[in-house]
């Protein structure tokens, strides 16, 4: 059964700003965060029956918005890489990137996540961006707690091999790092 406009309005008033705040932490941009909120609510409309069955609507919307945000980050990185390549090729002005180690670490971690599978990406984001407990992460991703632990450890092992301890240190302090960016 479809959600009525009144039901939608109530949900929006209750959850939109919570989702916006959280999506902005990942996307670091108000407009993109608003887009993520709109897309999440569009999915609520499309999946009204499933949504009505959720004991925690926010948890369900969190999972939806996570996928959306990470896809946006992935697309953004792809575009930026292409544009950077082109500018180097033709000798034009270089792309001005935000300065500061914090932003670089944030970007490196997000780039590292690009290579992970969707479930692992979600596990890492919920654990380190949202500071979720393993139980919360398991609920969000739909996996068992041991599987969440295994996915995160596998990701960290790969991160350590590929990028060394510096990225792991950044990951360890990611919540503080993100607070410094918002």
């Amino acid at each position: 059964m479809e959600l009525t406009d009144d039901e939608l309005a109530e949900l929006y008033d209750r959850y939109a700003h919570v989702l916006f705040h959280r999506c902005r932490r990942i996307l670091r941009n108000d407009e993109d965060a608003n887009d993520a909120v709109q897309e999440t609510f569009a999915k609520v409309i499309r999946n009204a029956d499933t949504f009505r069955q959720q004991s925690s609507p926010l948890t369900w919307m969190y999972a939806i918005s996570t996928n959306y945000c990470l896809n946006q980050v992935r697309n953004r990185n792809t575009r930026r890489d292409k544009r950077e390549n082109h500018k180097a090729e033709i000798g034009g002005p270089s792309v001005v990137e935000p300065s500061g180690e914090a932003r670089e670490d944030h970007a490196r971690i997000l780039a590292l996540l690009d290579d992970a599978d969707d479930e692992t990406r979600a596990c890492v984001v919920h654990t380190f961006f949202d500071e979720c407990t393993r139980q919360e992460t398991a609920q969000l991703v739909g996996l068992s707690v041991p599987t969440v632990r295994k996915r995160i450890n596998t990701f960290l092992d790969r991160a350590r091999r590929q990028l060394g301890a510096a990225v792991l240190l950044a990951l360890a302090t990611l919540p503080d790092l993100i607070r410094s960016l918002t």
Binding site: T59, D130, C132, T133, E136
Partner: peptide, 13 residues
């Protein structure tokens, strides 16, 4: 030591 929330503080969720 990674900063995993062991339930001693509220998550953003």
């Amino acid at each position: 030591s990674l900063n995993v929330n062991e339930g001693d503080r509220p998550s953003l969720l």
